[in-house]
Design a protein around this nucleic acid. Structure first.
Lengths: 125, 125
DNA sequence: CATATTGGTATACTCTGTGATACTGGTTAC
DNA sequence: GTAACCAGTATCACAGAGTATACCAATATG
């Protein structure tokens, strides 16, 4: 039943010789890295200039300390953000976005745009 | 403690008058609509020409009937895909992507690109 | 001295996303 | 008649994502 009775369909599909498995994997990798409820908001917050832990926490409504802590760790491990400890009298911890993180600035902006227009669309339907 | 002793910081933040709460919400909306393990792979599959249920199922390694069924329903409700039933002797069901779905073709392509380069990066580290 | 801030950790809980497996009802093929 | 395909649904189960709440040590503030 593979290449039997669907010549037209086959033509269609073959006319786009894209490697679907590879694409699916790439998509799932990306979702894995930036997925979940909080990672993108955190990146966005840091890119917006928030550096300190509590500062980031306050800038994201609804997030808990635990979630922020966990996600920051994971994202540091994924080299998306950089954690800098300055050994002042009370140690100061600063989070900044890495160059690598900026590599999907485009994705984030696109997603913000899409989310806004989606909300509009829902509102008017 | 709001606008007390951080004039410099305030200046920094105010110099970027972006509405963070709105952005966070938009991001979370987008994640909600396309998030999860399977929605983007499904969209990608349908955009690649797969229309029939089993056809889509076979094109996505690892997905179960249950997940595909659920996700298709949800995405239909979100107007991302269109389900057409042709009442032939055994009914034929076809899924196609809506125009609205194409509105984040850009996001998908960006994410595929990012996922591929991320995998490269991991491999070489 | 009491309170607040910073940068988190600990514990306990809920909830939902996902997976595994089986099944249905109709149709065609051998 | 039995095996296979289509388009799913039903049930159970589990891990992990996320929430709630309390707590810690150090410092600063009143």
């Amino acid at each position: 039943m593979k290449s039997d009775n669907r010549f037209e369909k086959a033509k269609e599909i073959l006319s786009e010789p894209r490697n679907q498995k590879e694409e699916v994997q790439a998509l799932q990798d990306t979702i894995y890295v930036i997925g979940g409820k909080w990672k993108l908001p955190i990146i966005n917050s840091i890119c917006n200039g928030n550096k300190r832990f509590r500062e980031i926490e306050r800038s994201i409504p609804g997030i808990t300390t635990r979630m922020l802590s966990r996600e920051l760790k994971e994202m540091e491990a994924n080299q998306l953000i950089v954690r800098t400890v300055t050994p002042t009298t009370p140690v100061m911890v600063e989070y900044t976005s890495s160059d690598y993180c900026h590599s999907f600035g485009d994705i984030i902006l696109e997603m913000i745009k899409w989310g806004k227009s989606h909300r509009e669309r829902i509102k008017n339907s």
